[in-house]
Computed example of a mutant assay.
Amino acid sequence: MHERKQRPAVRPPLSPLEIGIEVVALVSIALSIYLTVQAWATLPARIPGHFNLAGQPDAYTNKSDLLYYPIFSSIAYIFLTLLSRITQFFNYPWAITEENAARQYRLARGLINWLKLLLIWMLVYGEWLTIEMATKQATGPGALVFIGLMLCMLLSTAVYIVAARRAR
């Protein structure tokens, strides 16, 4: 790939869309914490720990493992937020120049932010589904939501590649 040391050190300001993504991501983490706290007293000692493609539990685990959802959501948020701040050092398949640096960095940061939000939504949905199954109240699409979120991740990546290629 192209020499990273020679790239312009540009940090484009956050767009209103990026600010909105950050707010929604933080609210989603707060929702994850709320779900854990709200459901804790009503959960049995053993809860679903894994689901098959039909959205049915096929393994069980301890109730305390529910804490991993808000913890992993928070860690993912922090890690991906920090990662999105160093777009100058990413690998790009084309040269980054003074003319295209701001646009390329903004697009790369946008991709990381979208993927961060979708990952957090996957974790929140997994937590909600676990709680619903554990309390025998499960309704809804099961694994279809996970598949939809994964497809959104792939689509986001494809949109980024097309937009970044055009912005060379």
Rank of each mutant, 00 (worst) to 15 (best):
V27S: 13
S28H: 12
S28Y: 03
I29L: 06
I29D: 04
I29C: 02
A30W: 12
A30K: 11
A30Q: 09
L31A: 15
L31Q: 14
S32Q: 12
I33W: 15
I33E: 03
I33Y: 14
I33S: 02
L35N: 11
L35Y: 10
V37W: 05
V37T: 14
Q38D: 15
Q38L: 01
A39E: 05
W40A: 06
W40F: 05
A41Y: 00
T42H: 10
L43G: 11
P44A: 05
P44M: 08
A45R: 11
A45G: 03
R46I: 05
I47F: 11
P48R: 14
G49V: 10
G49N: 13
H50M: 09
H50C: 00
H50Q: 14
F51I: 08
A54Y: 04
A54L: 12
A54D: 15
A54F: 03
A54R: 14
G55H: 03
Q56R: 11
Q56K: 13
P57Q: 12
D58G: 02
D58M: 02
D58N: 13
A59L: 07
T61V: 10
T61W: 09
T61K: 05
N62R: 13
N62F: 04
K63M: 03
K63P: 00
S64F: 08
L66A: 04
L66K: 02
L67T: 06
L67C: 07
Y68P: 03
Y69E: 05
P70C: 10
P70M: 08
I71Y: 08
I71C: 07
I71D: 13
F72L: 14
S74G: 09
I75Y: 04
A76G: 12
A76S: 15
Y77S: 09
I78Q: 03
I78V: 15
F79T: 14
L80K: 02
L80D: 00
T81L: 08
T81H: 07
L83Y: 06
L83C: 10
S84F: 04
S84I: 01
S84E: 01
T87R: 00
T87G: 07
F89C: 03
F89E: 11
Y92E: 04
Y92S: 02
P93S: 09
W94C: 04
W94M: 14
W94E: 11
A95M: 14
T97F: 03
E99D: 08
E99M: 02
N100D: 04
N100W: 07
A102H: 11
Q104N: 01
Y105S: 00
Y105D: 00
R106L: 04
A108Q: 00
